[in-house]
Simulated assay, not measured.
Amino acid sequence: MENIFRRMNLDTIGIGASMICAVHCALLPLLFAALPLLGMEITENTVLEYCLLLFSFGIGALALGQGYLRHHRRLLPLLLFISGFALLLGGHFWTEAAAWEYTLICIGAAAIVGAHLLNQRHRRYCRVHKHH
């Protein structure tokens, strides 16, 4: 199982998950405004939103945790990920910030993507051990 995680680039998967979440949350309501008229509510599907959040968090925790523990020991990617995820959750569940929902979600997704990119960069220049 560990060999599978070493071959997969979890940061790339995490970036993809964050981008899918951002597109789903920000652009889909603009592009598919007519779907509720047809009885399709993909933009307000709470099961889909929870699955995207859970998937994004799971991949991020694996990728960034692995990068921190095995490669670089730098906290900035982890802090950026935690901040981004907090913004995502705030955009989804903080009802008083309804006017800021899409802004919080987009900034949160961008922070998560930034955390994965930073993690990838730090993994390339590993401080913990030498790669050949």
Rank of each mutant, 00 (worst) to 15 (best):
T12I: 13
G14E: 10
G14A: 09
I15K: 06
I15P: 13
I15W: 09
G16L: 13
A17K: 04
A17V: 07
S18Y: 00
S18G: 13
S18A: 11
M19Q: 07
M19D: 09
I20D: 00
I20T: 08
A22R: 04
A22F: 06
V23W: 07
V23N: 01
V23L: 08
V23E: 02
V23I: 15
V23K: 01
H24F: 08
H24A: 11
H24V: 08
C25M: 14
C25I: 09
A26P: 00
A26C: 15
L27S: 13
L27C: 02
L28Y: 13
L28S: 01
L28G: 02
P29C: 00
L30N: 11
L30I: 13
L30S: 13
L31W: 09
L31Y: 14
L31H: 03
L31M: 13
L31Q: 04
F32A: 07
F32R: 04
A33L: 02
L35Y: 12
P36C: 04
P36Y: 05
L37E: 00
L37H: 04
L37I: 02
L38P: 02
L38Y: 12
L38R: 14
L38Q: 06
G39C: 08
G39L: 11
M40F: 13
M40P: 00
E41A: 09
E41I: 07
E41S: 12
E41D: 13
